[in-house]
């Protein structure tokens, strides 16, 4: 599924959060959404998932507005992983992941074989099969995040929008999650992830969208987005650059003093 956002404007309490955003998302692409705190990443992701009403601008899904596509159809084709991952009730991990199948199920119908297969493969993909029968409250933050990611994968959508899916994950599972996103994208799904880890973003993503103050500062392949000027302006930092096995990477190195970035 293609998502096209044009002229996105949104303000809370008169303060503009996003201004004049144009963005096109394609199938088979792993896009990293990066930017400093308050740059508008989460807001943009929620708009792309049709979770926020727009002041102006429009979002089209395969050329259609969400209304035309229909709520249920959109839910089947677009999966959204919310930030933070709060779960109110102490449900078993399996029941949580099964929630991802709700858009595909008739109300009150039992899980079909296809549902069960999707749930099992989602658990396997996030290396969370061992927690299947545990309640969410008994899991650590990182383990819970993997179950929630499995929930989003279980939708088997054509587009996956994930807000900070790496929070709380140990380094190994961060790498595995990024590799997973890359695999999913390679298989044809569009993936957009909000990330704070620039090293991982640069290494794994096909394309980075750098937000600064509610505008797109840079949009393109990581090497182009990670210019010193862009990083200084958006984050107020300098980076160290290196390469290993023919892959370039950046490492946040030093915070610039205020004013230095301009």
């Amino acid at each position: 599924m293609r998502i096209e956002a044009n002229g996105i404007e949104i303000a809370f309490d008169g303060k503009p959060i996003l201004a004049g955003i144009d963005l096109a998302l394609r199938p088979g692409e792993l896009v990293g959404l990066i930017g400093a705190n308050g740059a508008g990443k989460t807001t943009l992701l929620r708009i792309l998932a049709d979770l926020l009403p727009l002041a102006s601008g429009k979002v089209l899904y395969d050329g259609m507005p969400a209304k035309t596509l229909g709520r249920r159809m959109l839910a089947q084709r677009l999966a959204f992983l919310a930030q933070g991952g709060s779960v109110q009730w102490q449900m078993r991990a399996e029941a949580v992941v099964a929630l991802g199948r709700l858009p595909h199920r008739r109300p009150f119908a039992d899980l079909t074989e296809a549902d069960k297969a999707a749930i099992t493969s989602a658990f396997a993909a996030t290396d969370a099969s061992a927690f299947r029968d545990r309640s969410l409250g008994s899991l650590s933050g990182g383990e819970r995040m993997r179950v929630l990611l499995a929930r989003a994968l279980a939708v088997e959508a054509e587009m996956l929008l994930a807000d900070e899916p790496l929070v709380g994950l140990d380094p190994r599972h961060q790498l595995e999650a990024m590799a997973l996103f890359r695999r999913i994208a390679a298989a044809g799904t569009g993936v957009v992830v909000v990330l704070h880890d620039l090293s991982l973003a640069g290494r794994f993503c096909d394309r980075l969208v750098l937000l600064d103050g509610g505008r797109v500062l840079a949009d393109g392949p990581p090497a182009a987005v990670f210019e010193d000027d862009n990083l200084a302006r958006a984050f107020g930092i300098t980076v160290a650059r290196g390469s290993r096995d023919g892959e370039d990477f950046v490492l946040p190195w030093q915070a610039l003093n205020h004013g230095e970035s301009n």
Partner: peptide, 11 residues
């Protein structure tokens, strides 16, 4: 269970 955003994203 997973919050209002997730519920809406599930249709």
């Amino acid at each position: 269970t997973l919050g209002e955003d997730t519920a809406r994203s599930l249709g």
